[in-house]
Amino acid sequence: MKNEKLYDAISDIREEFIEEAENYKFKKRVAPRLIKWGSMAACFCLVVLGASLAMSGAFAKKGMKSDGYNGGSVGPTATPAPGENLSGSGLLTVLAYNGALFNVSNNLADLNAAGIPDIISPEDCGPSLGNLKKTLNGYEETTQSTDIELFKYAPAYSNTAVYVIRDGEDYMAGLFSNNLPVGDENDYSPISELFRRYGVEKAEHISAVQLYSGYWQNDLPVEPAEKNITERAALDAFYEAILSMEHECYSREERLQIKLSEDPKQFASSTLQVASTICITTGEGLKFYLSWDEDSGWLFSTGAKAYYRITEEMQTWLNEYFK
């Protein structure tokens, strides 16, 4: 339906227009009778003023100039240019690429949280993947020639988790943050897909699995890891356990239904009771995170936008190494 398409497009109008409409106060209209009497009063005042000026000879004074007042016109309100939408913690904007959303950042803490050791420079650029353009929401692919370029990240092998963006002379990292730019509840990644993004396709590609208390998916953990597993046999078993969860992948809604059916009294919302975060470090040094709801037995990835139910095999591994 064409009108529905218009409705959808109107949904995405600029935030400043939405705020403006909410806060705007319409001017009070003057009632016609007041206008009539007001006009008469104004005319009377003008007549009196004119007469008094004429009598004082003010008009006779030569060289009288207009005050040059232009009616107080004000230029158009400055609107931020696309991509200028700076927010905290070094996050500049986002990149929508290849069906996924990436946080664009050159902040040291963000880079370190993803396992990228230093600032992004031209040396980090792998093969060029084409040009980007700025949009209201951030960066997007374009076939036009622009001064913004997307590169593979050269120092570490990563399928799609990290990119380098050059905007003019600025170099930034595009860090995988979400599987879909526009949220579709039922579109989410199986757990192997999440690992593949970071270049993990077999157990040897993992160099460490750490346990932190609390929720850390979007920040660099500041506390030392409670557990740090680096033994090869344990990592092999971990990857095996991860693969055993391949079919235990659910959307938020599906997970809610499962929890409701299992314990309808206890559960009224879909929120996770995250007690710990599991950090996976790849052989190339990249890091990504899984939240762990120990009580109800779920893992969650913000990036993959998916909930994974812990299998018996994974529970055994967690009991052995993280408890």
């Binding site: 398409k5 218009l6 497009a9 109107i10 995405d12 109008i13 227009f17």
Partner: peptide, 9 residues
């Protein structure tokens, strides 16, 4: 729809 939003803006 995205392009259309730009025109409406």
């Amino acid at each position: 729809a995205k392009e259309l939003s730009k025109y409406i803006n």
